[in-house]
């Protein structure tokens, strides 16, 4: 068991296995995202109430899903790093934070754009949007804290603790914001709570969500790989790898 965990934690092993996994996730991401957007944007029927503007759901919902999932995976990575001292977990957490913040921003922005046709304004203190905004601040806090330390080891630990504290708070924040919203404004029209959505409308949505997840996994693998190379640049296997590539390139040239 321990041997397995440590093997899993070895940057070299991760670098190898992620090279094999990465293309599959990229392929899945492209396939799902193309299918989902074509279907959702061109073929799914228009909403009887919102018309075509509802189609922004195909960006907004997957982004919002991902924004929350990434925070959870970041906290889990942080926990793995703190408990088992597995450095790859921290590298993954480090590359996830900006991606999560970007997704949160996409969700907020698409929500705001959607607000124009539905509410006639760019911003409403809607429960979902408010929670998203707070999530963005949580992401920014984690990123800022990691950047503030001069010692990378301390930065990693501090960011892990903050991510864990944040993930415990997210459900509490979400619950209180929902409560606050219903108190001040009985929900008359919220963005995505449609009880009856026809199959042709939600199927592309599911495909888009899966596509976003594949994209996230592929991108995280890719960025973690470059993070491994950056942090382990003094290690022998990385130098051998880099030198090997140089030798190969030279061999190509002389051929």
């Amino acid at each position: 068991m321990w041997a397995f965990i440590h093997k899993l934690g070895s940057p070299k092993w991760f670098y190898g296995i992620s090279a094999k996994l990465q293309p599959w996730f990229w392929a899945a991401a492209v396939l799902l995202l193309v299918t989902g957007s074509l279907w959702g944007l061109a073929f799914a029927p228009a909403d009887y109430q919102q018309g075509n503007s509802f189609r922004i759901i195909y960006v907004h919902v997957p982004a919002a899903f991902l924004a929350q999932s990434i925070f959870i995976s970041m906290a889990v990575s942080g926990l793995v790093f703190m408990v088992w001292k597995i450095k790859v977990a921290d590298m993954a957490a480090a590359v996830m934070a900006p991606l999560g913040a970007a997704m949160t921003f996409v969700a907020l922005f698409s929500g705001a754009v959607w607000g124009v046709p539905t509410w006639g304004t760019w911003w409403m203190w809607d429960a979902r949007l408010t929670s998203m905004l707070i999530l963005l601040f949580l992401y920014l806090g984690v990123i800022a804290l990691r950047g503030a330390f001069t010692s990378r080891d301390s930065a990693s630990r501090a960011a892990s603790v903050l991510a864990m504290v944040g993930v415990i708070n997210i459900p509490i924040i979400k619950y209180s914001v929902d409560w606050w919203y219903t108190l001040h404004q009985p929900a008359s029209f919220t963005l995505t709570s449609r009880p009856t959505m026809p199959t042709e409308m939600w199927l592309p949505l599911v495909i888009m969500v899966l596509g976003f997840y594949s994209f996230f996994i592929a991108l995280t693998l890719m960025r973690t790989r470059s993070e491994i190379l950056r942090r382990e640049s003094s290690k022998r296997w990385v130098q051998e790898l880099v030198n090997g590539q140089v030798v190969n390139a030279q061999a190509e040239e002389t051929r």
Binding site: F137, L138, G141, L145, N169, S176, V177, W179, W180
Partner: peptide, 13 residues
């Protein structure tokens, strides 16, 4: 920056 988002539930109630 770190603490204020975590304060929101307390503020709400």
């Amino acid at each position: 920056l770190l603490v204020l988002p975590l304060y929101i539930p307390v503020l709400i109630f």
